[in-house]
Design a protein around this nucleic acid. Structure first.
Lengths: 192, 192
DNA sequence: GTCTATAAGAGGATAGAC
DNA sequence: GTCTATCCTCTTATAGAC
């Protein structure tokens, strides 16, 4: 992941710039300027702009897939698994908010085969999420709810959490987790 | 808004392309190709690429501001106003899903003074939303909730609804409204 | 590992014929 | 109102000196 110190620096600065201006609108000169070097110097550390995007996105998608696998393989109740998934999103958001922004918007600019790998990982993730959500709803006798719409609501909020976190970086993570779990799950389970 | 037929066509095709590839990654040649003309011909109808973005975004922001004003000036209860705001989002999403995508992501690429106007309108809108949400929570004795986080959750879901709608265009709008209102408001009001 | 110079191409936009 | 030709700038990336 982080061979040299310089490469780590490039990846970090790139993700921040990509988050702020978008991948396409960020130039190699912009990235280089952030490191106080000239653009061609970047190519001693990375193959090109596309490689930066691929590393950033695929590493993060891996972290999500790995986290979901761990939850899936556990012996927790479905409801607890659901809470763990929310915690997984929160943890990764606090650890890497810039990366989360790319996951939400700049993944479209991935080129093949990275694009296909990314979409496949995301689909697998959402399928697991959907399964756990459906089983939880079943156990709580709420089979009537529109699962896809509920999943979509939860994912939308979790995906945009990075922007909220960037504006409120001082929040207590445990408080945040408590509030988010309430907001997201009560909407589905505590209907009148 | 729509002086000539050609201009309307340009705006419509542009918003679809911007939604799919992003503003920066869409070229004037791409837009022209969609209309089966050459890029320079576009300039007989619009001043440039930036003008297209500005018309699309400011018109839609206007629609939101106007809708919110109408709700604010009404004599409805706060809870009913909240439901009307959700309906406003749903209506505009169904009417113009491509535009909603720009509202969520491509507004960063607006240049001044359009950028400032847009941000000002959005801030006013969110302030009204926040006020109505707070008053509703107060009336229902739920003052403990984190209002900003609740507002953020609701807005995240509403802003991403366009992507869900594009994948599920056959849903009954009334059914959608009912489900969304349940999902979004129960999470805040029906906590155990 | 960083630099300067530069290639090769894409993009927004204009001029002027028809 | 659309076209072809063209300008100018920005962009990614490479070559080769230091």
């Amino acid at each position: 992941m982080a061979e040299s110190n310089r490469k780590t620096q490039i990846l970090k600065d790139s993700s921040r710039l990509f988050r702020k201006r978008g991948y396409t609108a960020t130039s190699m000169r912009d990235i280089a300027a952030e490191l106080n070097i000239e653009a061609p110097s970047l190519y001693n550390h990375i193959k090109g702009k596309q490689e930066i995007l691929q590393i950033l996105l695929l590493d993060l998608a891996q972290a999500f897939t790995h986290g979901m696998n761990t939850i899936n393989e556990s012996s927790l109740s479905y409801r607890s698994k659901l809470e763990r998934i929310i915690k997984l999103h929160l943890d990764l958001t606090i650890l890497n908010p810039d990366g989360m922004a790319l996951l939400t918007s700049d993944w479209i600019h991935l080129e093949e085969p990275a694009f296909g790998e990314f979409v496949k990982m995301r689909e697998g993730y959402e399928l697991s999420f959907r399964h756990i959500l459906r089983e939880t709803l079943k156990k709580e006798g709420k089979e009537s709810a529109n699962i896809d719409l509920a999943l979509f609501s939860i994912l939308s909020t979790l995906r945009w959490l990075y922007s909220w976190y960037l504006k409120n970086p001082d929040i207590n993570p445990i408080e945040l987790e408590k509030e988010m779990t309430e907001n997201l799950l009560s909407g589905i389970f505590n209907r009148k």
